[in-house]
Design a binder for these strands. Structure first.
Lengths: 172, 172
DNA sequence: CGGCGGTATATGAAGTCTCATATACTTCCG
DNA sequence: CGGAAGTATATGAGACTTCATATACCGCCG
């Protein structure tokens, strides 16, 4: 049920359409959530059915009529309760990391290559990252920097042959 | 389709039952994936139907007969292809972080309290973290440490009143 | 011998997510 | 006028996830 709550949270600052919400989520990964439009539309409908948001149709300068949602008092209550729930660390769910971890059984040259590929992704993401004007953005930034440093350290260790992989014997 | 591949990856070192796989996943969050038993069982069946794993029933010292799966050559091929796919950063999906981010509109005392709650979770997780014997584990460890430092820095800033929230005017 | 606790497998409902696909309206450009 | 491009909403299949629930087998302890 998180997506609905995240949407309520976004709507609680500004009324918005599904399209707007998707843009806001996609723009700032530091928010901790993103979703497809095809998830967002049904979620907004559920919120509407539940009385947590209200709908106003508006002609838009371009494209079909916008459906602008805004939070109702009931929605604000619901959001407040969700925000007050106890925290928990998320279940790990990262296919790239999973592959990177499995890779450790491979040969060092391949491992370095893939590590560098990953490093590239991190560097791009860091370049794209919004300035640290919120705690969440500062968090994202330092995490990316840390991961970048980690990737470099692991690569260096592999290249130095300090961390010998399965190929060690063959080379010996 | 990630879960199936992750399972193939685990099975490629040792044949195992669904229960074993769940234990391995749950024990090491650095692996980047975890799942419920109720996801794992159907996934193993799909793998079996697809010929990617084979099944051997075995009496177990305790409990009902174990169903031990092992990777077939076809499964090994499939795994190899998956491992070779290009990397991508995962879509953010963290309800706790989302709430933490939304919290930034609240009053500093509340924000500090919730940050500390989060800090506690991180500290526990760090204590529980396995020693850094693999690259993935070292990654997890440094990320937790970084996040811990971030939480402390944000708390300190809030307490020092440097980062004035909406309550600033009332206090002035 | 009867229940408790741990091992192990299983199922169903409801919601969520991904991916593919479709459609409508507008402006701009040729 | 016609097509391309951007805005905006929508739907469906299939897989994935969560949560609740059920059951079976075994050894141990009282």
């Amino acid at each position: 049920m998180s997506l609905s709550h995240v949407l309520l949270g976004l709507l609680s600052t500004t009324p918005a359409s599904g399209w707007d919400l998707k843009r806001r989520l996609g723009e700032d990964p530091a928010r901790g959530w993103d979703a497809d439009l095809s998830q967002i539309y049904p979620a907004l409908r559920r919120l509407l059915r539940g009385g947590f948001v209200s709908l106003k149709r508006r002609r838009s300068p371009q494209g079909p009529p916008r459906r602008e949602y805004r939070v109702t008092p009931s929605g604000r209550r619901e959001l407040k309760e969700w925000l007050a729930e106890p925290y928990a660390l998320p279940r790990p769910h990262d296919a790239t990391l999973a592959r990177l971890a499995l890779l450790e059984r491979g040969l060092p040259p391949d491992r370095v290559r893939r590590l560098q590929e990953y490093r590239g992704l991190l560097a791009d993401e860091l370049k794209r990252a919004a300035p640290g004007t919120t705690a969440a953005r500062r968090r994202r930034r330092v995490l990316l920097e840390t991961e970048l440093a980690w990737a470099d350290a692991e690569s260096a260790a592999l290249l130095a042959g300090r961390s010998l992989g399965p190929a060690a014997k063959e080379r010996a």
